[in-house]
Computed example of a mutant assay.
Amino acid sequence: MNPLRKHFDVDTSLPVELVLRSTKNTQSELPDHLHDWFEIIYVHSGSGTFFINHTFYEMQAGDLFLIPGNTIHRTLPNPEQPITSSAMFFSSQYVQSAAISKEAFSYLRCFELAKSNRHYKLELLEAEQQRLESAINEMQEELRLRQPGYRQAVLLLLQTVLLHLNRKANPGQIAKDSHSGHNSPPWMQAALNYIDSHLIEDLQLTAMARRAAVSPSYFSRTFKQMTGLSVTEFIIAKRITLAKELLLTTDHTIAEIAGQCGFESLPHFYRMFKKFAGSTPNHYKRSV
């Protein structure tokens, strides 16, 4: 199994998965994972660092992270203070609903803001923490008992959570000063930013190491330790994420998209897409 891709085995009529109060440490934490579903992560206790897309964030009790679909992320727990967190995974199509009257509202607006601003963290007040914990506990109880109407109850609870998160995020309260280079060398953030802005170019390890003023072996080793991926794996995963967006938002051919995402050949693009996305580009476009 490819550790990059998280797999969901749930009722297709209820595309939601909860993982409540899971304690993560350096031994149990999985490598980065990449999936189409959206994810909300809430920290109950402990501390550590969260790597999302291209930025490192401090984690502590009361923090909430919004992870849009197809966003690389990884938790790096503090060995002395293991993180206990809850996670909600859901399909974006599941929570969408028709607008009421003339009010334009999207339950996913907070994720769109997080992605466009490249800031994925919200810091919840005590009352907000209690409200969120109550909602996810109710969702878990509905999923456990499966009484008549439980699917609708879970949807309503999830939509309520998203409603409050949108109200929290829309005034611009997504934390823009919360990222830091905790436990990472100063050049690491610059390297991640460089990859993001030159993604479709020929990115060579030696050239990036030279920009960082470190040896290629040290660059490679540190990059793997901090992100959970080799430099090559990280670049390909980011390119596949871009390809997924283009497949769903443009009418470009597969060959055009492969070139626009920096792949050297169409066969190479197909192989990497299958490896990182779990399906062919054509199947992905038809199934989403």
Rank of each mutant, 00 (worst) to 15 (best):
104 A>H: 15
223 F>V: 00
100 I>T: 14
129 Q>G: 03
197 S>A: 14
46 G>S: 03
143 L>W: 07
122 L>K: 04
80 E>A: 12
266 L>K: 09
142 E>P: 02
93 Q>I: 04
264 E>R: 13
50 F>S: 08
272 M>H: 02
268 H>L: 08
153 A>L: 14
210 R>N: 04
56 F>C: 11
176 K>L: 15
258 A>E: 14
92 S>L: 04
235 I>G: 07
256 E>Y: 05
284 Y>P: 12
139 M>R: 07
118 R>A: 06
220 S>C: 01
21 R>A: 13
123 E>Q: 12
173 Q>S: 14
83 I>L: 06
161 V>S: 10
72 I>W: 08
191 A>T: 06
286 R>P: 02
94 Y>K: 06
25 N>V: 00
108 L>P: 11
202 D>W: 13
109 R>Y: 06
90 F>E: 07
81 Q>I: 02
91 S>T: 01
245 E>G: 12
63 D>W: 07
55 T>N: 02
270 Y>T: 03
252 H>R: 15
118 R>S: 01
46 G>Y: 01
201 E>I: 00
101 S>A: 08
207 A>H: 15
103 E>T: 03
274 K>V: 00
269 F>R: 07
5 R>D: 03
215 S>W: 02
28 S>R: 03
180 S>K: 14
58 E>H: 13
21 R>G: 13
72 I>Y: 09
57 Y>N: 03
265 S>A: 01
119 H>A: 06
218 Y>V: 09
208 M>H: 09
52 I>P: 07
263 F>N: 00
148 P>A: 04
179 H>K: 13
51 F>A: 01
216 P>F: 15
242 L>P: 08
47 S>I: 12
53 N>E: 09
264 E>H: 02
68 P>R: 06
287 S>P: 00
28 S>C: 02
42 Y>R: 05
242 L>M: 09
93 Q>V: 02
54 H>F: 13
52 I>R: 04
212 A>C: 02
104 A>E: 10
75 T>F: 11
8 F>V: 10
243 A>S: 07
234 F>K: 00
147 Q>V: 07
54 H>E: 15
74 R>G: 04
75 T>H: 11
109 R>C: 15
288 V>T: 13
2 N>D: 15
70 N>F: 07
106 S>A: 12
133 E>P: 14
51 F>R: 05
120 Y>N: 00
204 Q>C: 05
260 Q>W: 03
40 I>P: 05
